[in-house]
Design a protein around this nucleic acid. Sequence first.
DNA 1: TGCTCGATTACCT
DNA 2: GGTAATCGAGCAA
Length: 251
Amino acid sequence: MPDHDQRALLAREFFDRPATEVAPDLLGCVLWHDSPAGIVAARLVEVEAYRGGMDAASHAFRGPTARNAVMFGPPGHAYVYFSYGMHYCVNVVCQAPGRGEAVLLRAGAVVEGAMLARQRRYGVPAASGTDAGGTSATGGGTGGAAAGPAGPDAGNGSRGRQRELDLARGPGRLCQALAIDRSLDGAHVCAPSGPLGIGPAQVDQSQADSAAIIRTGPRVGISKAVELPWRYWIAGDGHVSGYRPSKPRSS
DNA sequence: TGCTCGATTACCT
DNA sequence: GGTAATCGAGCAA
């Protein structure tokens, strides 16, 4: 049933470049997780580049530790960490081993397995019955999902639409929707047999148009190197999370 | 050994 | 729009 061995995957060489080059190229690509419960896939609409030892905001800035060891390994592997005591965030390692560069995957639009993603996020089977994307039941596979954000909330009001946009809007939500946790730390996203993968951007005309408009700006929630415009997102896409500067802790 | 902070989110006003 | 929640990593003593 998992048709992911037929899915196109990005080559390892794709990630063997500076994170600031990989990050914009990842926009429009599809991240998927094939779990026992089913497949959920999301088209990436927002990412951030972290450049290891030369980037004070990077987890790798201070050198390798047990937590960030994966960042210093070969490119094309997932670095998953636990944040704020309750959320997971997922990165993809870039550059040759030892560099510590990675791209944080911040937000996506669920294009497959939306029903399962809703279940994970909101604990309900489905808001409305129009979604055929539950688990791997999507007949058309990735291609059929290319229609964009229309289908799932048909018949719902703006509230339902917002919920749909919020499914994977933000790094913590993305991980929750795709059931990504520390067990996937180090997973190879270029391996055909692995549970986690990233496929190339779909060459659909409407998406090609939107993917052409890539914006850059300061990264979210960091207190160091805030001036670096290493956040990349698809302009006008409702699945992009809003910019929030780092908030100093209240005493 | 203990303390502080964090690549966030959900909920309350 | 503002704030509490929550826990692991990293640093200092």
